[in-house]
Structure formats: structure tokens, C-alpha cells
Design a binder for these strands. Structure first.
Lengths: 348, 348
DNA sequence: GCATCGTGATGATGCGCATTATCAGCACCA
DNA sequence: TGGTGCTGATAATGCGCATCATCACGATGC
């Protein structure tokens, strides 16, 4: 990281000081004792002593170029990670990544330089630093299938955080479909028959999975389900639609929207969950930021991040030896028992 | 990032396909047209076409090893960045870093691998990847002065986020001393005479600056100031101390503690700010997470991050040409006009 | 007809490290 | 005495790229 590196300490210099060759220094540093390489303890210690004294640190670029592992994990987010809109989503994930990387002794390389094309970051560009990393973690609601395919084809070690449809992409995801279905099943068991689902339009697998879980479970349980797309901008309109639907169960994607509708419900004199049950499929990171505990899914995002790192590390270490069945993991998603789901018609 | 790189595309391969030498490819890629190097448009375009078609991407390690800039900014946090305790502190900073890095076209390398020694991360260790970055940003409340000195001595490009006492370390910080003093001055102007300051023990410059600002301003304004160290674990004890002090102005480091004491004040039948004014020196990132707007400092953390990146980029580009006076920047810290500061004795 | 000059490149070299093939020296046995 | 085997290293090579000195070639000048 410098321009005028006249006095930089290299293996060569270490070798001179210890009276050996550069190769010997490298061999000692890499702990090569096997097979044809033999270095007596005495020499080894002499070299290590010099290294200690000089504070030598190997140049990562040179190591990498010579074919060694770098202990760097790339992180690519398809949306900027830190803007306040996505903060609740990314922060716990990154917390998990950081913790796991620290345990592993790896650094995280955030590909923030990726240029934005069509409102989405583009991983592949002229100057990408992908090769610096031993592997890459992919985060984001919607990923470019072409880029994913290109990654899968190339000899890149990749793990996506979140389930992906694209074949060949290993991932650690959350079983949103199962969790959403469980939520609906629970409501069905309580006696709900008419359901309205407010969903936003997104092609992200996680969003689609949640919706699918609701739809499938409703069908199998014989519930009547009304689907209403919404962008959440006009809660009043949404609320009117809910009222007109005659549903006793309202399923909302966003907890924020759920909260807004809850307000309107009570304002209208409805009791929740007595007259109307409300459940949310998403979650916010910050517990306690809501006044009412809405019954909802609570994806274990931090753990998701940790397990993604673990899987990537394993793929890096073992390569093709990792069986396909273990390259795609779905984690269970707990349901938070809030106070907004109960049997319909009751006074609570 | 691979093991079996048989078919990797290199400049050599590009050269073959375009019928030129590797040097020529490199020259074209680096836009070298000056001086003794001349390459006609025709050849240039032919090469660029091949690059386009093959999707060639330069190996960053090789570039770096050969002496080129990498467009990677290192980020070192002396405390883990994402655990929930520090989230309010680091997240807006990282948001600023990310935004600025994106503008610059740089990637961020998080040195998460740094081992923890004595409860603090250690930047210098055998396998650090410092040299991979063109420069490093240092974050954290308390930094190891020895490591800072070593960085300053070496030919590392460094910028600390937050003011640092260590000589030779460029930084972008916040003028906490001035802001804290301004806060006290404002209170003095309102007629306050007895002040109690609850501060936590920390050697971090920012913490010390805030305290110094309060102490100096109180002295100059002729206020009586009582100092009480606290770790915030026992708000009741703190509250007793406040009552016994007879102060009309309570200055608290942590907004959380300020909120807790505010509660106890009203519980005790005191009116705030009628009987007691309360101001906080720190801030939380998430606006609206408090019920009462406590008058306090609001450090512009996101902008702090952005300006730190900008300064580092400048130092990387211009090197020693950046004058010393511009290597150390203090930003103004706005005061949030809350509802907890007023003239003493009044009924509000 | 020979020196000069500009054009359009190229060959060689080094960055710092990992790795492999090789080698000198010595002891040991026949 | 010559062959064999082991020990303790080392020289050489390549990774992919940037950079500089060099060069072949044709045109131009006198």
C-alpha cells in the first residue's frame, strides 16, 4: 500500500539475515515438513526468530499470485447495504458474516465498486476484484440470473444468501414457504376461512416463496383467498380493500404495513384479533420498535449469515467433495407468537 | 479464486488472439499514450474488441504486485462493527463509507480477521492483508497508540475516523469539545449555575473531548460543576446523586441513561426542564426511537464516513502533496433542540 | 546512397512468493 | 573403492501484469 517501498521487508531479506535462501523461508512459513522437504528445528527457529524481530508480513498479492489461499471472502450485495431502507435487512446479515469471518480468520471484501446498471449493481465489470477472494457471498433480494449463471459456470466459489432458483448456485436460505404455510395452517386450525393477502410485486425468490406458502396452504386447507398486490404507499386504500373482502385473516408482507393497517382497524372500531386477525410475513431487525407484537415470521438473519460463511468456507476447502445435497440449505423460520392472531369471531 | 485455472483468460491470451504482444495489451488497457508509447487507433480497437468478446478481467493480485493501484480501501474497526451494542455507532459510518467508496469505484476490505488481544482487535498480525489496500480507514472508540504510530511511521496511507492524539495520524473527526461547550454555554446563558456531569470512563478521544468541552465551558462561564463517573448500570444510584447535587442542569454522556434519568425525574414529581434540565452528549442513530426529544448533540456520522473516505482518497492520490493542515479535519456537530433544556426554576 | 528520424510496436525484467526438481555432502554397507 | 541412501537445503521456475529500453522498418533529407 505504498509508493516508495524501498525498505520493504521481503522473504529475500529474511533469508539474507538468517543465512538461508528465500525458498527455505517460504517453506518454513508454510509449515512444509512433509515428503521431500526437511528442515531441522534449529534452522527453523533461527528463521522464525528473524521474522519475529523484523515484523515481517507476507505480501498478500504475491501469495495469491503464487497460488495460495488468501483467506478473503468477497461480499456482493445487489442493493447498497447500508442505506436506511435496507438497514434492517442487511445489518443482521452482516453481523453474522462478520462473526463467522472472524472465527475463520478471514477478511471480508465488500464489492462496493460495482457499477449500478438499470438500478441494480453489476458484479461483472472490467475492474472487478473477484479473483482476490477465495470465494464470494451473494446478498440481495433480486439477483441477476445471468450473472449467477456466469458465476456457476466459472470456477468461482460462490454461496448465495437466500434461496435461488438458478441451477448450480449453492445457497443458505430460509424456508419461507414452509413457514408461511405453517402460519396459514395455524390460522386455519383456529377456524379462519376467508383470507386476504397483501403482497408486493417482486421477483425475489424469498418474496415469491412466502406468497407461494400462503397460497398453497390456503388451497390445501380449503380457505378462500383473495390476493391484492400493493406497494404499501396507500394504506387507506389497502384497508378499504381488506374491509370489503370480508376476510377474518389478513396476511401482510411488510410488518410496517401490518402495523399501519392494525391502527386503522382499531380506529374503525374493530378489535384485533377478535374481529380480524393480522399476521405479517416479513420482519424488522430491531425488536421492540413496535408497540404491538404482531404475529409474524422472524427469519434468523444473523445465523443465516453465519451459516452461509460456513458453507462457503467448506466449499473452498473441500471443493467438489461437498455433495450437492449439502450445497443447498434451508433453515427453519420461527413464528413469533404475537397478539394479533386468534380464532375468528371471538371477542378474543 | 479457483483451484483449477486451466482456461483462465490472461493478457497473454488476449495478445495471441489480437496478434500482438502482451505488453501491447497492457499498454492499451492502461491507456498509456504519452511519451515513447504509440499505438494507432486501429490496433487499439482490435485489442479492445477481443477483450470485450472474451470478457477479460485483469487479475488484481498481479496488478498490485506489479505496482499498480488497486482501488481497495481497507477498513479496520477496533471493535467488532455489527454486534447490536455498537450497531448505532458503526452502521451510519459504514453507510457513509459505502456511499463514498461506490462513488470512487473502490472496494472495501474489512479486516475482520484481526485477532482479539486483551479485548481489542489487533491490526498487526502475521497474516494481515494490509498491503492489499491502497489505504486504510481506522474506526473505533479507542485505538492502540502503538499500532497507530507504526502505521504513521510505515509508508501506509491512513485516515482515522475520529480525532486522534497520536501525532502524524490524519483524521476526520467531530468537534465534540466545541459542541459540548456550546451546549453548556447555551445552558449558562439561560441562567443555569449548578451542573452535574455523568461521564463514563473511557480513554477514547471523542469521549474525552466531550468531557473537556463541558468542563472548560463550565469553568469559563463560572458554573459550579460536579463530576460523577458512572457505567450506567445503576441509574437509581445515579439519580440519587443528581438529586443530592442540587444541580439544575444534568449533562449525561449516553442518551439511554439520560432517558432513564428523565423517567426517574418525572416519577419523583420533578418537571423537566422546569425543575431540571437534561442534555445528552452522545446520540443514537435511529431517530424516533425515543419518546421524548432530549436536547443533545447529533454527530453527523454518515457524512463523517464520507469525508474520511474522501480524505483518504486524496492522500492516496496526492501523497505528501496534501498539506498537513488539511490532513486533520474537525466537523461541526449540530445540537438537536429538544424539549429538555430551559431556564432553571421556571415552570417551563 | 547513406545518415536521420518518426512510427509501431516488442522483449526483457521485476514485483514477492510457493513449489518442484535437483544437488552437495556425508555415512554406511558390501 | 564404489555404490546406495539419507539429510539439508537450494536454484529455478512461474503466477499475471506494468514498465522501460530497445528495435525493425519505412520515409525523408541532403
Amino acid at each position: 500500500m505504498s509508493r516508495s517501498d524501498t525498505g520493504r521487508i521481503t522473504q529475500q531479506r529474511i533469508a539474507q539475515l538468517a543465512g538461508v535462501s528465500q525458498s527455505t523461508v517460504s517453506l518454513v512459513l508454510n509449515g512444509r515438513v512433509d515428503g521431500s522437504v526437511r528442515i531441522p528445528q534449529e534452522t527453523r527457529e533461527r528463521i522464525l526468530k528473524v521474522i519475529e524481530e523484523t515484523g515481517y508480513i507476507a505480501d498478500p498479492s504475491a501469495r495469491r499470485l503464487a497460488g495460495a489461499d488468501n483467506h478473503i471472502l468477497g461480499v456482493f450485495t445487489y442493493e447498497p447495504a447500508f442505506p436506511t431502507e435496507s438497514i434492517d435487512f442487511y445489518t443482521p446479515l452482516l453481523a453474522g458474516l462478520e462473526a463467522a469471518a472472524e472465527t475463520l480468520g478471514s477478511d471480508l471484501l465488500l464489492f462496493t465498486s460495482a457499477p449500478v446498471v438499470d438500478g441494480r449493481r453489476q458484479l461483472f465489470h472490467e475492474r472487478n476484484r473477484l479473483r482476490l477472494a477465495d470465494g464470494v457471498l451473494l446478498l440481495g433480494l433480486e439477483m441477476d440470473p445471468d450473472e449467477l449463471a456466469r458465476l456457476a459456470e466459472g470456477d468461482f466459489r460462490v454461496v448465495a444468501v437466500g434461496r435461488r432458483d438458478t441451477p448450480g448456485i449453492p445457497y443458505v436460505g430460509i424456508d419461507y414457504a414452509g413457514a408461511a404455510a405453517a402460519l396459514v395452517d395455524r390460522a386455519a386450525a383456529l377456524g379462519h376461512e376467508r383470507v386476504i393477502l397483501l403482497h408486493r410485486s417482486s421477483l425475489g425468490e424469498s418474496v415469491l416463496d412466502r406468497r407461494r406458502g400462503v397460497v398453497d396452504a390456503a388451497r390445501e386447507a380449503g380457505l378462500s383467498l383473495q390476493n391484492r398486490p400493493t406497494d404499501g404507499i396507500d394504506p387507506d386504500a389497502d384497508w378499504r380493500a381488506v374491509r370489503e373482502s370480508g376476510a377474518t385473516l389478513l396476511v401482510v408482507e411488510e410488518p410496517e404495513l401490518a402495523a399501519a393497517l392494525l391502527e386503522r382497524a382499531t380506529a374503525d372500531g374493530l378489535s384485533v384479533p377478535g374481529d380480524l386477525s393480522i399476521v405479517a410475513l416479513g420482519s424488522v431487525a430491531r425488536p421492540g420498535s413496535e408497540t404491538v407484537e404482531i404475529t409474524r415470521l422472524v427469519p434468523p438473519r444473523a445465523e443465516l449469515g453465519e451459516r452461509a460463511v460456513a458453507l462457503l468456507a467448506r466449499i473452498i476447502a473441500e471443493g467438489d467433495a461437498v455433495p450437492a445435497s449439502e450445497r443447498r440449505v434451508l433453515m427453519d423460520c420461527p413464528i413469533l407468537d404475537g397478539v394479533t392472531l386468534a380464532a375468528p369471531g371471538g371477542d378474543r
